[in-house]
C-alpha cells in the first residue's frame, strides 16, 4: 500500500495512544484492587490481597454473580434460537418486508435502553400482570441480544452459500438430516461467537435490568451500582471490576479464534 512513512507512523501512534487511553483506567482499577489503602490513595502505600479475600467471601457478590450468570445464559439461549431463525429467513428467502425484519432485530439495541426498559416493565406490570423477577430480566436481555447472534449467523450464511446443502440433498439426506450433519456444523463457530457476545452484553447491562428486575433480583451490575458510592465497599467493588477485566480475556479470545478473520481480503 502506498502510504508515506509519516502516515504509517501517525496511524501506529494513534493506535498505540488510543489503546493506552483505553487501558489506563482499567489498569488503575486492577492496581487499586491490591492497594492497601482503603480510599485508593495514590501512589499506593502498599499492596495487599485482603480485598480479594473479602470479595471472595462476600455473599452479596456471589449471589449477584450467580444471578447474572443465570440471566446471561437464559438470554443467550433465547437469542441463539431467535437470532438463528431470523438470520436463515432473511438470508435464504426473498419476501415482502425483509428489510423490516432486519430493522426490527436491530431496533432493541438502536433504541436507548431506558425506552426498552420502561416499555417492557410497563407491559409486564400493567398489561400482562407478570411479577418482575429473574424471568422478566431474561426476557428483557434476550430482546436486545438477538441482534448479536443474528449478525454472526447472517455473515456466516452469506459466506457459505448453498452448495453443501444441495450436495447433501442430492446424496439423499432429508431436510432435518442435512441441517444436523451439514448446516449446523457450518454454523457452530458463528453461533458460539454470537452467543458469547450476547452473554457479554447481558452480563454488563444495567439500564434494562434496573426496570425489569424485581425487588429481590440483583445482577452483578446492579450490585456494583448499589455499592459504588459506599466507601467501605469500594475496595470490594474494585476487586469485582478487576476480576471481570482479567477473566474476560478468555471468552473473547475464544470468540475471536472461532469467528476468525476473513482470509479472502488479504
Amino acid at each position: 500500500m502506498n502510504l508515506s512513512r509519516t502516515a504509517r507512523a501517525a496511524l501506529w501512534t494513534a493506535l498505540v495512544l488510543g489503546l493506552g487511553v483505553v487501558y489506563v483506567p482499567l489498569g488503575v482499577v486492577v492496581l487499586n484492587s491490591f492497594n492497601s489503602d482503603r480510599t485508593f490513595g495514590w501512589p499506593p502505600p502498599g499492596f495487599t490481597l485482603q480485598w480479594w479475600g473479602a470479595a471472595w467471601r462476600s455473599t452479596g457478590v456471589r449471589d449477584a454473580l450467580w444471578t447474572s450468570v443465570q440471566a446471561g445464559l437464559g438470554a443467550t439461549a433465547i437469542a441463539l434460537v431467535l437470532g438463528t431463525m431470523a438470520a436463515f429467513a432473511v438470508q435464504r428467502y426473498r419476501f415482502f418486508g425483509r428489510d423490516t425484519v432486519s430493522l426490527l432485530i436491530v431496533l432493541p439495541i438502536a433504541l436507548p435502553g431506558i425506552v426498552t426498559g420502561i416499555a417492557l416493565s410497563n407491559t409486564f406490570h400493567s398489561v400482562l400482570g407478570v411479577p418482575l423477577g429473574l424471568f422478566t430480566v431474561i426476557v428483557g436481555h434476550a430482546t436486545f441480544c438477538v441482534v448479536t447472534v443474528y449478525n454472526n449467523v447472517l455473515a456466516r450464511l452469506r459466506r457459505t452459500g448453498l452448495n453443501m446443502e444441495e450436495a447433501s440433498a442430492d446424496l439423499g439426506a432429508d431436510t432435518f438430516t442435512t441441517f444436523r450433519l451439514v448446516t449446523f456444523p457450518m454454523m457452530r463457530s458463528a453461533l458460539l461467537a454470537g452467543g458469547l457476545l450476547a452473554f457479554a452484553l447481558s452480563f454488563d447491562e444495567i439500564i434494562v435490568t434496573t426496570f425489569t428486575a424485581g425487588a429481590g433480583v440483583r445482577t452483578l451490575p446492579i450490585w456494583i451500582f448499589e455499592n459504588l458510592f459506599r466507601p467501605n465497599q469500594a475496595p470490594v467493588v474494585n476487586v469485582v471490576a478487576a476480576a471481570l477485566v482479567i477473566v474476560s480475556v478468555v471468552p473473547i479470545y475464544l470468540a475471536q479464534r472461532l469467528s476468525g478473520g476473513d482470509p479472502q481480503t488479504r
Binding site: 502510504l3 504509517r8 496511524l11 501506529w12 493506535l15 489503546l19 483505553v22 487501558y23 483506567p25 482499567l26 488503575v28 482499577v29 457479554a200 452480563f203 454488563d204 444495567i206 452483578l220 451490575p221 456494583i224 451500582f225 459504588l228 467493588v237 474494585n238 469485582v240 471490576a241 471481570l244 477485566v245 477473566v247 474476560s248 480475556v249 471468552p251 473473547i252 479470545y253 470468540a255 475471536q256 479464534r257 478473520g261 482470509p263 488479504r266
Partner: peptide
C-alpha cells in the same frame, strides 16, 4: 497495517474493555 496475527490480538485488546463493568469504568 497490522499483520494477521497482530490483528487477532488487537481485536482482543479492543474487546476486553467491553467486559469490564460499565459502571466501574465511569467511576474510574
Amino acid at each position: 497495517l497490522a499483520s494477521p496475527r497482530a490483528q487477532r490480538w488487537l481485536v482482543i485488546l479492543v474487546l476486553t474493555p467491553l467486559w469490564a463493568s460499565y459502571l466501574v469504568k465511569a467511576y474510574a
